[in-house]
Computed example of a mutant assay.
Amino acid sequence: MRKLLTLLCILITFNSNSQDKKGLFKSIYEDFLKYSTFYIAGDVQNSKENAPNYFVRTNPNGSLYDVPVVVDGTEYYDYDYRYGFGVRKIARFDYEMKGKQYYDGTESNVAMTAPNSSVKGFEYVFHTEKERSRDDVFQNHRYFLKHSGKHHIVKIESRKQGKVNFNYKSAEIRAKLPIGKKFSLSAGAMYRTHDRPYGYNPVEIWLNETNAQGQAINPWYTLGFYYGYDDIYYTYEDSYTGETVSDWYWINEEGETIAYTDLQFRQTVFTDLMNRYNNEIWADIDTFGVVSPVIGFDYYHYKNNFWLHSYGSYLLPYHNYVKGDEAFSYFNRNNWGLGGLVEDAGKEQWKDYQAGIQFGWKLSKNVGVFFEGEYTKFWDTKIYNSSVGLNITLK
């Protein structure tokens, strides 16, 4: 956020210095605040209702074969809510329509993903909100700032969406070459962040560590000891076969039995412990920051009865990490084996890209066809959304 505000001050100062005849505050208002909207908004809705789920427990005053106690195990949640506030100034392209009569922070305009904008100058969204979903509370934000000119594009963004575990920052600067009135090319550099250490599975490496004799250094059940569980050996005589049976039952730190056999522990509690172990190791790895060369295009044609807007960006495979431990970076996504990072493994570059299209054709006053779609491939993440429609108006 500090870097975003610094860039904002630089751009405002540059614009105000170029217009000495205007007062500073008037320049800030006309260049930055004019046509912006301040808003406070929120919503409340029912949480997802789970299907009923019941199980039985042995009656404390009886045995396994007495009438059991039926327990309602259904998860119930309080209502979901979201409230926030912000300020925005994003120009819509001619084909875009305002979704509602008011802003609430959920809007996403094409100018926020396409290289070009429908106007020159500043566009921005500064939004922060608090959200509760299924009793989990998240603090979300989206900070977006863009400045477009005839021959340049500067954009910076920070976005956090806790419900989907999304945390992303980016900044880019491009030179733009208009070719005619409808088409333009752009080229520059882009900085992006990601939290995930792709290809690195800590628990798999930990479980597969062996000594010189090929024996496991960390037997799978020792992960239970690591998190405070304990196993107790027992034997009993099978009343039907007369055989002596032995196994281990497991207790938690409070001494409560949570599994009656090793197999039951491995199929239930152990799975959660594996994920817990991975999440704790991943949390200790710093966020990654990578700089990439980027080229893009933008084509825009609009008439009342026909429009086509297509755009795309291609990040060339010459990426360079400037933040984070490179051993865990996307360079080594395929270089992690059961014994850890492959020795002398080479860096593996990759290709990322974004593309979008907005199309509409009103065949007559009563018939129209429409298509919208966007696709993003960043690292192993692929995001796509599209919609198609046929409208027939009867009069």
Results as ranks from 00 to 15, higher is better:
residue 1 M to P: 09
residue 1 M to T: 13
residue 1 M to Y: 03
residue 4 L to F: 10
residue 8 L to Q: 14
residue 10 I to V: 15
residue 13 T to G: 13
residue 18 S to H: 15
residue 28 I to T: 07
residue 29 Y to T: 03
residue 29 Y to S: 08
residue 30 E to C: 05
residue 32 F to R: 03
residue 33 L to T: 05
residue 34 K to N: 15
residue 36 S to M: 04
residue 37 T to C: 09
residue 37 T to V: 13
residue 40 I to P: 10
residue 43 D to P: 02
residue 43 D to E: 13
residue 48 K to N: 12
residue 48 K to M: 13
residue 49 E to H: 14
residue 52 P to M: 02
residue 54 Y to G: 03
residue 60 P to Q: 01
residue 63 S to L: 09
residue 67 V to N: 14
residue 69 V to Q: 13
residue 76 Y to E: 14
residue 77 Y to L: 06
residue 81 Y to M: 08
residue 89 K to W: 00
residue 94 D to M: 04
residue 96 E to C: 04
residue 97 M to F: 14
residue 99 G to I: 10
residue 100 K to A: 09
residue 104 D to K: 07
residue 105 G to E: 07
residue 105 G to L: 06
residue 107 E to A: 05
residue 109 N to W: 14
residue 112 M to I: 07
residue 120 K to V: 05
residue 121 G to M: 02
residue 121 G to A: 06
residue 123 E to Y: 04
residue 127 H to V: 12
residue 128 T to G: 13
residue 129 E to T: 13
residue 131 E to P: 04
residue 138 F to W: 13
residue 142 R to L: 10
residue 144 F to E: 03
residue 149 G to D: 05
residue 152 H to G: 01
residue 154 V to R: 10
residue 160 K to W: 05
residue 160 K to N: 15
residue 165 N to G: 08
residue 165 N to Y: 12
residue 168 Y to F: 15
residue 172 E to D: 10
residue 173 I to Y: 14
residue 173 I to G: 15
residue 182 K to R: 15
residue 183 F to Q: 04
residue 185 L to G: 09
residue 185 L to R: 00
residue 188 G to F: 02
residue 188 G to K: 02
residue 191 Y to E: 05
residue 192 R to C: 01
residue 197 P to Y: 01
residue 200 Y to E: 07
residue 200 Y to W: 08
residue 202 P to D: 05
residue 209 E to Y: 07
residue 211 N to H: 04
residue 212 A to C: 00
residue 213 Q to C: 02
residue 214 G to R: 03
residue 218 N to R: 07
residue 220 W to N: 00
residue 222 T to R: 00
residue 223 L to A: 02
residue 225 F to R: 11
residue 228 G to L: 12
residue 229 Y to V: 02
residue 242 G to I: 06
residue 247 D to C: 05
residue 250 W to P: 07
residue 253 E to L: 10
residue 255 G to R: 07
residue 256 E to M: 10
residue 258 I to D: 04
residue 266 R to H: 12
residue 269 V to A: 08
residue 278 N to T: 03
residue 280 E to F: 09
residue 281 I to W: 08
residue 282 W to L: 14
residue 284 D to R: 15
residue 290 V to W: 02
residue 293 P to F: 04
residue 293 P to R: 01
residue 296 G to V: 01
residue 297 F to P: 00
residue 298 D to T: 02
residue 299 Y to C: 00
residue 300 Y to H: 13
residue 300 Y to S: 06
residue 303 K to H: 11
residue 303 K to C: 04
residue 305 N to Y: 14
residue 306 F to I: 08
residue 308 L to E: 05
residue 310 S to T: 15
residue 320 N to R: 07
residue 320 N to G: 08
residue 329 S to P: 04
residue 330 Y to A: 04
residue 334 N to G: 01
residue 340 G to S: 09
residue 342 V to M: 10
residue 342 V to Y: 04
residue 342 V to E: 11
residue 344 D to V: 00
residue 344 D to R: 09
residue 352 D to K: 00
residue 354 Q to K: 09
residue 360 G to Y: 01
residue 360 G to W: 03
residue 363 L to N: 08
residue 363 L to F: 14
residue 368 G to T: 06
residue 370 F to D: 11
residue 375 Y to A: 05
residue 376 T to D: 11
residue 379 W to I: 06
residue 380 D to W: 05
residue 380 D to R: 07
residue 382 K to T: 11
residue 383 I to P: 00
residue 384 Y to V: 00
residue 389 G to Y: 08
residue 390 L to Y: 11
residue 392 I to R: 06
residue 392 I to V: 15
